[in-house]
């Protein structure tokens, strides 16, 4: 790590440490009325270790993670594939765009009651919600990325002997990659936010469900643990996509 980057990273840690210390002090000194509802940071950490050792946390996190992974991957693949077709072919774009334009604004969680009836309450439900949540934004980012590539690049590739499929693979997709990655990065975080909501409402397992159980038992420490885990997971996934995107496009952008 370069010196400047290390210093900046250290500066980022300081406010977080200050916040955690303030939290600990406020909770310990009973500075807020009704401190019953605010466990100290150290208490929360203790519970985190206990839940992890018992395998409860890992189990719920894994279940949520697998749902997100399947739904997000399926939604991304479908979004990118149909996005490529729409971006490449004007007729397909004109045909599909009006339909998707009507479906896109519906919030992913809005589909929940309908899907509960159509597919029932089971593993398919959160996966489908994540699919819908990922599909539309990634589709639109892909279409925008492909259609944003100057037509002159296509002409140049044609005169150099490239077939349509090779133009797509060697020119359009690589140049549209930053746009596609922006969609993936934003939606990977969004998928976690949506899965939690879905699990809170309709699914008995997963981090969302754990939070709802904790709420009914007044276990504020567990709720806080779940929120902290979500924050770390969303942050890490976004950083991971950013890193991959930069690795792939940094040199020429």
């Amino acid at each position: 790590m370069k010196k400047g980057t290390r210093i900046r990273a250290q500066w980022g840690v300081l406010p977080v440490a200050a916040f955690l210390m303030a939290w600990e002090v406020i909770a310990r000194l009973d500075l807020i009325p009704g401190q019953l509802f605010l466990p100290a940071f150290s208490t929360v950490m203790g519970e985190l270790i206990r839940l992890t050792a018992a395998g409860v946390l890992t189990d719920h996190l894994l279940r949520s993670g697998i749902r997100v992974l399947i739904g997000f991957c399926a939604g991304s693949v479908a979004g990118i594939a149909i996005g490529i077709v729409m971006g490449w072919n004007e007729t397909m774009n004109r045909t599909l765009h009006p339909v998707f334009s009507l479906l896109y604004p519906i919030p992913a969680l809005g589909w929940l009651p309908l899907l509960m009836i159509w597919v029932g309450i089971g593993e398919m439900l959160p996966i489908l919600i994540i699919f819908i949540c990922s599909f539309f934004p990634i589709l639109y980012n892909t279409v925008t990325g492909i259609r944003g590539v100057s037509r002159d690049f296509i002409k140049a590739a044609k005169t150099l002997g490239a077939s349509d499929i090779r133009i797509l693979m060697t020119v359009l997709l690589p140049i549209a990659l930053p746009n596609i990655f922006t969609g993936l990065r934003l939606e990977a975080g969004m998928a976690w936010r949506v899965i939690i909501a879905a699990e809170m409402v309709a699914i008995p397992t997963g981090i969302g469900a754990l939070m709802m159980k904790a709420e009914s038992l007044m276990r504020i420490d567990i709720i806080i643990i779940c929120l902290m885990i979500l924050s770390i997971v969303c942050f890490s996934i976004e950083k991971l996509f950013l890193y991959v995107e930069q690795r792939l496009t940094k040199e020429w952008r």
Binding site: S150, D152, F153, K155, A156, A157, K158, T159, L160, G161, A162, S163, T170, V171, P174, I175, L177, T249, W252, R253
Partner: peptide, 29 residues
């Protein structure tokens, strides 16, 4: 079709592929 006409085309804006190095641009065809 264009890709089999054997035409070299130097465009007004040159349209070098931004994601390819100079070597890869030259050898693209």
């Amino acid at each position: 079709p264009t890709n089999r006409r054997g035409v070299g085309y130097l465009f007004q804006d040159l349209v070098l592929f931004p994601h390819l190095t100079v070597s890869s641009n030259i050898t693209y065809g």
